[in-house]
């Protein structure tokens, strides 16, 4: 009896049907990132430099609050592994602010100005109140220069 009144607040059909987002990678130079909207929330698409990738891969899992290898994080849902492309949510896992990018913070990745969470160059939480890494959405490579999120 109560359920219809509770459930009406959950995402509605049109919200759920929100199309997936295609991103053209050719426009993003190395060392730069763009923000795209997917399902009403921003996503980072970063073209990482060699140094960033090496730094991310050299971190041992024991140093991490939410252990995940960089390879796991940079692999698309179709299994393509191109470490120069990092696609992940742009909402801090603490309370949802958009972190500052381009090597910000103490771990040369992202820094959230709201409550001071530091992420490394793989988007993994290293310091501050955020509990988890920036989540990686499902995405696939449509071609060499195009991905589809969702």
């Amino acid at each position: 009896m109560v359920w219809p009144f509770v459930d009406q607040m959950n995402p509605s059909g049109d919200t759920l049907a929100l199309a997936s987002t295609e991103v053209d990678l050719s426009q993003i130079p190395e060392g730069a990132q763009i923000k795209v909207m997917w399902r009403g929330r921003p996503m980072f698409v970063r073209h990482r430099t060699k140094a960033e990738i090496e730094e991310a891969q050299s971190v041992s899992l024991s140093q991490l609050k939410d252990p995940q290898t960089d390879e796991d994080r940079a692999t698309a849902a179709d299994g393509t592994y191109r470490p120069e492309w990092l696609v992940m949510s742009a909402n801090c896992t603490h309370l949802g602010c958009v972190p500052l990018g381009d090597g910000a913070g103490e771990y040369n990745g992202w820094f959230c100005p709201c409550h001071g969470s530091h992420y490394d160059s793989s988007g993994r939480i290293r310091k501050g109140p955020a509990p988890t890494n920036l989540p990686v959405p499902e995405y696939v490579f449509l071609s060499d220069t195009k991905i589809k999120i969702g």
Binding site: V6, P11, R41, P131
Partner: peptide
């Protein structure tokens, strides 16, 4: 933050509060 108690609980609550996947029109 309730995800730290029961995984998924907090996310379900926020999705329910938002009526979507982020703060938006609903």
């Amino acid at each position: 933050s309730f995800d730290q108690l029961i995984p998924g609980l907090g996310t379900s609550i926020t999705t329910w509060l938002w009526g979507g996947f982020s703060v938006d029109n609903p």
